[in-house]
Design a protein around this nucleic acid. Structure first.
Lengths: 239, 239
DNA sequence: GTCTATATACGGATAGAC
DNA sequence: GTCTATCCGTATATAGAC
C-alpha cells in the first residue's frame, strides 16, 4: 500500500482529530453548535502543537496559546479546564486513533512476512500523517498525570507487541528464523520512532516515507527470514 | 570489549563530568577552591538531572533545585547565571566528552566489520554509563539557544557520520554489500538512541547493555555483509 | 562562601461586561 | 459565545547580612 492510498482510506485530517476530541468531551465544552466547536478546537489544536513542539508544552503559556490560536484566554477556558486537561485531551484522542489504525493494520489474514510489512507501513504512514502529534505525544508524555502516563506507556507497548506477535507467529509457521522476537520488535519500534522524532534529518536528505518504509520492511523481513540472527541464543524475558 | 572494561578505561564518573564543566567555566564560578567547586557542581549536576528527567527542565524551579541539591538559591547563582546557563553548561560538557570517546572508538586500524562493532559498542556503553545525561540531552535540546541547538544537532550528526563512513569504507573494500550507507547508519543510530530513551523498557525485560550490543552488532554486521539490502537501489542524498 | 529576605515580573485562572 | 480586566500565587534574580 502506498502512502497516498493509506491517507485516503484512513480518516486522519485535522478535522477528524478534533471530532474525536469533541466526542470525548462534549459536556465540558461550552460551545453548543458543532460547527463552532470543531472550528475552534482546530485552532486550539493547531496552535498547541505548533507552539509546544517549538518550546515545549510546559513553556507554552496561555498567553502564547491565545496569540497563536487567535482566541482570547477566556475563550480558551470554554474548551478545556486548564493546561493539564488540554494535554490529556490531545493525548487521548491521538492514542485512540492510533489504536484503531494499528488494530486494523494487522487484522488481515496475510502470511507473517506480509503482515509484518503491513504493520511497519501502517505505523510509518500513520506517524507521517500525524507527525506533529506523534512528536508532541512522545516529548510531553512526562507531563501527564499518573493514570494517563500509564496509558501512554501501554499504547507504546501495544504497538510493539503487535509486531512481536507477528514475528512469533512467523517462527511458529517456520517462515521466520529463530530470531529473538522481543528484541527484534523493540529495534523495529525504534526505527519507526526515529521517523517521527528525526523528521528534520530525513526531510533534509529528501528521504520519502515510502523509501524509508521500503528500507525498514526490507531490513526486517530480511533479518527475520534470513538466518542472520544468533538463533536460539536466549530470548528476552518480558517482566 | 565488555562494558566493564570500557568503564574502567574511559573517565566517565560524575566527578570527571564536573571537572569538565569547571574547566570550561572557571572564571564565572565564584568558588575559588577546586575541591569546593567540584563538590558543589556535583550536587547541582546530580540534582538537575534527577528533577529534570522527572518533570522536565522547564518545569524545574530554582526552589526545586535548591531543595534537591541542598544548596540555597543564592549559592546556586554563584555557580551559574540562571537556568539557561546551567542548561548550556551541562549540555556542553557532555557533548565534549561524547565527542572525545566516539573519536577514540573509531580511530583504531581495524577492518570495517570490527570497526562498525566498535562504534556501536562505544556508543551503547557510553550512553549506558551516562544514561541520565543522554536522556536529558535529547529531551531538553529544544530549550537551548540557537547556537547551542545547532551544536547539539552537529554532535548528533557526527556520530551518524562516523558510522556511515565505516560502512562506506567497507563497501569500498568489498567486505560490505551495496547497502545504502546513509539510511543504514540512520537506523543504527535509531537503535542506539532507543537504548537510552527507553531504559525502563529494557530494564523491565532484564536486557543487559551487552546483550543489546551483541544484538545490534549482529544485526548491523549481518545486514551489511549479507546481501539483504536492495543493492544499488539509489542512495540517500545528504542535503 | 553561603544564607535569608525581598524586588519585580509573569503565569494561570476567573468574573463579569458585551 | 467571546472578550477584557484583574486577582493571586509563584518564579527568577539580586542585595546584603553573616
Amino acid at each position: 500500500m502506498t502512502y497516498r492510498q493509506f491517507k485516503r482510506q484512513a480518516k486522519l485530517t485535522q478535522e477528524d482529530f478534533c471530532l474525536e476530541m469533541l466526542a470525548a468531551h462534549r459536556e465540558d465544552i461550552k460551545a453548543k453548535k458543532q460547527r463552532t466547536a470543531v472550528k475552534n478546537l482546530e485552532l486550539i489544536f493547531q496552535a498547541t502543537l505548533k507552539v509546544s513542539n517549538q518550546k515545549g508544552f510546559q513553556a507554552m503559556t496561555m498567553r502564547d496559546l491565545s496569540k497563536a490560536s487567535g482566541l482570547s484566554i477566556g475563550a480558551l477556558y470554554d474548551y478545556f479546564n486548564g493546561k493539564e486537561a488540554l494535554l490529556e485531551m490531545i493525548q487521548g484522542a491521538g492514542r485512540r486513533i492510533t489504536r484503531r489504525v494499528m488494530r486494523q493494520a494487522v487484522s488481515g489474514g496475510e502470511a507473517p512476512p506480509e503482515k509484518l510489512a503491513s504493520a511497519i507501513r501502517a505505523h510509518l504512514y500513520l506517524s507521517e500523517a500525524m507527525q506533529p502529534w506523534f512528536f508532541f505525544s512522545y516529548m510531553e508524555a512526562r507531563h501527564l498525570g499518573k493514570v494517563e502516563k500509564q496509558r501512554a506507556k501501554e499504547g507504546e507497548l501495544a504497538t510493539e507487541r503487535h509486531i512481536a506477535e507477528v514475528i512469533k507467529e512467523g517462527k511458529r509457521q517456520g517462515v521466520f528464523a529463530g530470531v529473538d522476537h522481543l528484541l527484534t520488535a523493540a529495534v523495529i519500534k525504534g526505527m519507526l520512532q526515529d521517523w517521527y522524532l528525526k523528521r528534520w534529518k530525513y526531510a533534509k536528505r529528501r528521504v520519502s516515507v515510502e523509501r524509508y518504509a521500503d528500507f525498514v520492511v526490507g531490513l526486517a523481513q530480511g533479518y527475520c527470514t534470513g538466518g542472520l540472527g544468533p538463533a536460539g541464543a536466549g530470548e528476552a524475558r518480558d517482566e
